[in-house]
């Protein structure tokens, strides 16, 4: 029985890898129950007035794309379905914009969006919270160019948004995986300007962000891969996050079983 306490970590890795691969080929198809938290985030975006303009800030890089890409994709679909205009850009997450460019082009192209008129990619700007403050004063000065290094001032959509202020921007949608992230957007943009903030975060960040949802400072919060799957279902575009839920299930079950086995071994050895 004591052996149960000392299972080689390589065996655990192997079983985990096997289960991940297995669920790719043999989906369990367990239903994903939609939580109030994700439904709230969906409604916050859905209930914006027609013709709204939203700022989408994907504040992440390839490390977090497994959890946040599905949210970003579903967010683009929801905003495009509702006909919102979009400003897409981040600050300090330089490695993120490049991987998101094809996603933006493909999805918004399918909805017939015109670059520079209906949406614009700002790229990644340096400065973090300082850039955010500058953008609340003057967006063109803060950005200067777009993702393609073209002068920002030439695009018609920018004439509608001289700065990040509640009179021009109806919501900020932040996808967060670290610093700077949603907290900085809350402190430096949402709170001083009054622009509503909807946030998507990786699973391990959910506990630190829930108090802001409860206090009403976030208008919505989507949490981790599970939240992304729920959000995809609400938007009506089930994708990678929904597919990954089977993997989440078997891994959670596996970890639980290993914890139980380890404790059986521990209790047996203690009795001896």
């Amino acid at each position: 029985m004591e052996r149960l306490m000392k299972i080689d970590r390589r065996i655990i890795y192997l079983i985990a890898a096997a289960l991940v691969i297995l669920t790719l080929f043999v989906p369990l198809g367990l239903p994903v129950k939609i939580s109030d938290m994700t439904r709230g985030a969906y409604s916050a975006i859905e209930n914006l007035p027609d013709g709204s303009l939203v700022f989408i800030a994907p504040m992440y890089d390839p490390g977090a794309r497994g959890e946040l890409d599905p949210m970003f994709v579903a967010m683009l679909h929801q905003c495009a379905k509702r006909g919102y205009k979009m400003l897409i850009g981040n600050t300090s997450w330089t490695l993120g914009v490049q991987m998101l460019h094809p996603i933006v082009t493909d999805i918004l192209g399918d909805y017939g969006y015109t670059y520079g008129e209906d949406y614009i990619e700002l790229g990644s700007k340096p400065g973090g919270s300082i850039w955010m403050q500058q953008a609340t004063n003057d967006l063109v000065t803060a950005c200067i160019t777009d993702y393609n290094n073209q002068p920002l001032a030439q695009f018609p959509i920018i004439s509608q948004v001289p700065k990040l202020a509640a009179e021009y921007v109806d919501a900020i949608l932040v996808l967060d995986c670290g610093t700077p992230g949603a907290r900085e957007w809350l402190t430096y943009v949402s709170t001083p300007t009054g622009i509503p903030l909807v946030v998507g975060v990786i699973q391990m960040s959910v506990p630190e962000h829930t108090p802001f949802l409860d206090s009403g400072q976030y208008k919505g919060l989507i949490g981790g891969s599970r939240g992304a799957a729920e959000y995809e279902l609400l938007v009506g575009k089930p994708g990678k996050a929904v597919k990954s839920q089977d993997t989440m299930s078997v891994i959670a079950l596996m970890v639980t079983l290993f914890i139980i086995l380890g404790n059986i071994g521990y209790l047996t050895s203690r009795k001896k």
């Binding site: 970590r9 655990i12 890795y13 890898a17 490390g63 891994i251 596996m254 914890i259």
Partner: peptide, 22 residues
């Protein structure tokens, strides 16, 4: 970058098994 992040899942699986004892 994605590979490094995904490896955390394996470490957490092993760490949870070792650390969570009654």
């Amino acid at each position: 970058s994605a590979a490094i992040f995904s490896m955390v899942a394996f470490f957490i699986t092993s760490a949870a098994y070792r650390a969570f004892r009654v």
